[in-house]
Amino acid sequence: MSESIDIDVDGRTVAISNPDKVYFTKRGETKLDLVRYYQSVAQPLLGVVQDRPLLLERYPDGASGKSWFQKRVPKSAPDWLHTVEVSTPNGTTSDALVAHDLAHILWAVNQGCLGFHVWPNRVRDLKIADELRIDLDPSPGIGFDDLKQAAVLTRALFTELGIDSRVKTSGSRGLHIYVALQPNWDGYQVRAAAVALARELERRHPDQITAQWWKEERGSRVFVDFNQNAPHKTVFGAWCVRPKVGAQVSAPIDWDELDTVVPEELTIATVPARLAERGDPWAERPPQSIASLLEMSERDLASGLMDAPWPPQYPKMPNEPPRVQPSRAKKGE
């Protein structure tokens, strides 16, 4: 391995050890290539993730090696790193890295971070969620064309409600739709809005879209994963590189590109030139209101619908149905 090099960024010097270590085997991109990628997309990246806590997915030997999730910044970290105390659903706390500037991102890359999972909150007020995130989940039997059609239908509903939405590839097999929010609602309210959205989409398009949490009830339909908005949940960050041998990027795209985009081709080798040519598809995202979705949620509950099931690691919530898949539920439960 070559000796470390120093990168000057944001008034800091970030040492990059073993810069020639291969991180992505398909084309042989190295740790330094990953650093250069993040430098090339720094402006739009920070426009989305700046001042948010990060959950780090570490692959010290590259995308083909062993990995783990790291919630806590190690004690050996430099004293200039910004951290913030965050908590899990059961109340366990940890000091998470904050995406304060590009120097923080590059420090994490040097630690072997090949995945940044981003909170929907900013450090100035961790109770407020200022993004609604819709994860269109490719269930068994669902292809990318199905996801694209579901994305178009989701956008149409948002537009009908006067809500501006943006789309990105997940960096894997899915699509993510984001809405920048006015800083008025906490994670419980944003999740309630996402549940209402998913249920309305299922009502309108029952053969294509489902809001059913239990996999056995989904069939061959696109699942709108509302629980990605549950408090303390993170979603893979926009402009961030997936731990895949092809170095695929979770890339923001324009809505008019949805028909032609090939997610596997959006990599650290192609995205910088694409950004230089087309600009940032997520530039100038105006903060939106979810009042209409919360009214829809209230109507659903008033009509007798219970809350949707929560993920298993969360405590039992008020008005939540039994947390057991229907085929195993006892009769009358």
Score class of each variant (00 low, 15 high):
residue 41 V to F: 07
residue 241 V to G: 00
residue 249 V to E: 02
residue 290 I to Y: 01
residue 275 L to A: 08
residue 176 H to G: 06
residue 287 P to D: 12
residue 150 A to L: 00
residue 169 T to P: 00
residue 207 D to R: 11
residue 229 N to L: 07
residue 29 E to V: 14
residue 56 L to V: 04
residue 38 Y to L: 10
residue 32 L to R: 13
residue 166 R to K: 13
residue 170 S to I: 07
residue 259 D to F: 08
residue 250 S to Q: 09
residue 53 P to S: 03
residue 25 T to D: 15
residue 167 V to F: 05
residue 162 G to A: 07
residue 134 I to K: 00
residue 223 F to I: 09
residue 142 I to E: 07
residue 234 T to W: 04
residue 209 I to M: 04
residue 172 S to I: 09
residue 250 S to G: 12
residue 270 T to H: 13
residue 33 D to I: 08
residue 13 T to G: 12
residue 245 V to P: 14
residue 132 L to H: 01
residue 313 Q to Y: 14
residue 199 R to Q: 10
residue 202 E to Y: 06
residue 136 L to D: 01
residue 210 T to W: 03
residue 254 D to T: 11
residue 124 R to V: 14
residue 73 V to S: 04
residue 272 P to D: 15
residue 27 R to A: 14
residue 40 S to E: 07
residue 148 K to R: 13
residue 243 P to C: 04
residue 256 D to W: 10
residue 28 G to I: 11
residue 221 R to Q: 08
residue 276 A to T: 12
residue 98 V to A: 02
residue 149 Q to Y: 04
residue 188 Y to C: 06
residue 288 Q to P: 01
residue 329 A to S: 13
residue 46 L to M: 13
residue 92 T to W: 11
residue 26 K to A: 15
residue 322 P to R: 05
residue 220 S to T: 15
residue 143 G to I: 06
residue 99 A to N: 10
residue 230 A to F: 08
residue 323 R to F: 03
residue 329 A to F: 02
residue 202 E to V: 02
residue 322 P to V: 09
residue 42 A to E: 14
residue 74 P to L: 00
residue 270 T to N: 10
residue 142 I to S: 00
residue 318 P to T: 07
residue 157 L to A: 04
residue 260 T to V: 10
